[in-house]
Structure formats: C-alpha cells, structure tokens
Amino acid sequence: MDLRVNLLGYTLDNPVIPASGTFGFGYEFAEFYDINCLGSISLKGTTLEPRYGNPLPRIAECPSGLLNSIGLQNPGAQKVVAEELAKLGRVYGKKVIANVGGSAIDDYVQTASEFNNADSVFAIELNISCPNVKHGGMAFGTDPKVAAELVREVKKASTKPVMVKLSPNVTDITELAKAVEGAGADAVSLINTLVGMRIDLRTAKPILSAVSGGYSGPGVFPVALRMVYQVKKAVGIPVVGMGGIMTAYDVIEMMYAGAAAVMVGTANLVNPYACRDIIASLPRVMEELNISSLKEIIGRAHNG
C-alpha cells in the first residue's frame, strides 16, 4: 500500500498537510503526538512585519464549522525564519511550506525572499485569499490581473516553487487559477475560507470585532470539492485540495476530485490529533476502496 505523493519535486510520505493558520508553526502539536507522521506542514501565514491581527472576538461558532477573523497574527518573516523554523526543526524532520501574506506586491516579494535560504522550506504558499486583512489579502485573489502580476514578481524573487492559495469568494475560481498558472505559479491550493458573519442575539451586534470572517469546517467540504474539481479541469499545474476535510474518506474524495495532496485545517482545532488519526486510518480506507496507491487516484473523478 503506497501513501506517497509528489508535490513540487518533493515526495510526501502521505498527502496530509495541516493547513496554514490551524497549526501554528507546528511545534505546539508535538505536545500531543509525534508530528513526523505528517506529509508536510503549511506554516502560519507570515508577513514582512509582525502583526497582532484583529481585536477579539476573533472566533464565532457556526453549524458544522466556525468563523475566524484572526487577521494574520504572526511575529514577522525574520523571526519566523530565525526562531520558529528552528523550534519546529527540533521536533519535525521533514520539509515544510511557508505561507506568505502581504498588503502590497513588495511585501509579498520581500517576505517570500526571506525564505530563500531556509533549507527546511520546500515551497512557498502565497496567500492571496485571506478575507481578514484590510489591505491586500483577498484583494489580490479576486482580480486575475492583479493576482498574475503578484505571482510574476514573487516568482522572480523566490528560489522556491510557488503555490498560490485561492479564494472561493469569487464568481469563477478557474479564472484565478488560470491567471496564476499563466503567470508561472507552480501549483494552486484551494479553498481558503468563505466570508460569513454571525450576530449576537442578545446584543444584536456582530460577534466578530471585524464584523465578518472566514467560514471553515466540514460545512464547506462540498463547496471546496466542487472547486477543486473545476480547477483540476482548468489547469495543468498540481492542485492541493482543502476545505472541511475531517476524515480519511474526505481525503480520498478530495483526491478523486483532483487534489495531488490535501490540507487539513479546522479539524485540527476540534481534535488536536485529527491529522494523525486521518493518516492512521488511510491504509484501512484504501483497502476498503481497493486503492493500492494514492498517486493513482488523483483526479479519478474526471475519468470517463
């Protein structure tokens, strides 16, 4: 039984990658289990300068998921490279994905460049889809021309393969996928969160200080699956699928839709062992579904 997949020139022992923003810089989870079982890790979104993010409350519960409006809290690129990667390196021996955010093209370019000499980083994930930062973030992910320009500039400056994380908050996600592919993106990952809001029934005020936030969790899985399927059809570069994956069955379904690897996000927040448990049950689920190699099932739903 072969769980390995290839992503951007790197072989992952299995396709399960904790999604950016739900796993910190990884080492927090080493308190719970040996995180070396993970295929890779997508690190907490990193910006050039340190960010505190949005005021509290940043979390609102929803049926089948939650809204967050963290606002890219992070200690800044230099500290991530110098301190967080070092801390992670003590508990994780594989290569990781650095998730890069920004509010101007220059920010993204400089932040991505900070990781050029970080040996433990095998790819950059450009976050052009964060709904929780006022300038930039999702703005770069809703206009194909702007997204393409950003990708071109980052590709010039980065020595790592560049994967672009796409927003579902657009009319046609394939337009964005095609635009970034045309600009030289090496892969796309999708979906980021769906913009939503909740109102406190007692105060009649929005629960989140930022009013709206990003909805994630098993409630978005069918939307994510549909978008991964559409994007797989539209582009030739690898597609990394995410959005509400909770079980090994969801992993297989997402790979059938076209995902070369998957990211697991919100599941980590309700069960810190989620990724470990999903990876542990993959062989049993593969056996049940007569799958001997995960590589072979990527995009199977597109066949005839």
Binding site: G53, L56, V270, P272
Partner: peptide, 22 residues
C-alpha cells in the same frame, strides 16, 4: 476569558495584547 477556537494555542483566536507582545 475569551471566545476560543482550539483551546490549545494553535489558532490564535484568543490572543490579547500585553506589554510582552501578543
């Protein structure tokens, strides 16, 4: 107290400002 996402430090949902940083 705070509205929390995970409860164990992963999501940054409950970060407050302190003199020593978030």
């Amino acid at each position: 107290e705070a509205r929390m996402g995970c409860g164990f430090g992963a999501c940054m949902g409950c970060s407050i400002k302190t003199k020593g940083g978030p």
